[in-house]
Design a protein around this nucleic acid. Sequence first.
DNA 1: ACCTAATGTTAAGTATCCTTTACAATGAAG
DNA 2: CTTCATTGTAAAGGATACTTAACATTAGGT
Lengths: 67, 67
Amino acid sequence: MLRNRVKELRARHDFTQSDLGKLVGATRQTIGMIEKGDYAPSVLLALKISKALRVNLEEVFWIEGEE
Amino acid sequence: MLRNRVKELRARHDFTQSDLGKLVGATRQTIGMIEKGDYAPSVLLALKISKALRVNLEEVFWIEGEE
DNA sequence: ACCTAATGTTAAGTATCCTTTACAATGAAG
DNA sequence: CTTCATTGTAAAGGATACTTAACATTAGGT
């Protein structure tokens, strides 16, 4: 349902999962799970992630199948 | 921490809490709680809400105190 | 071959979201 | 004043997010 580009955008900044986790106040496991698509983060964490990756939230997270 | 303009934007569309809830697949109570700031929705629900309100997610939800 | 950083992946537990049900408060319309 | 739609609120429970801890795998550097 929810898709994301966290892994791609994180790599673009040369952040490790740990780096990004620290930047947004989450664990590396949480980042890993989100990248894998295992679960959808809260909007709070999603906002922090998109801010850390310097893009709009919709460029990181979007609903699969929307037009 | 998380602030939002759901109530204001919902009124602008003449949606009741029930209307918006049905549009996004949530209950009116959930919408009410979000408007009240009682909790931060999932990014999935937040995306659906911003889509129903026809604005970018960041125009509906934002982190208090960011520059 | 060894060491280390990074990632993958599980399991268990805590925290938070979200629903269902229920009842109260408000306000507009008759 | 009554009726109805809307909203506020709260408790209980189910679903999901997130953490901590642990161990495995991969890749690079020495």
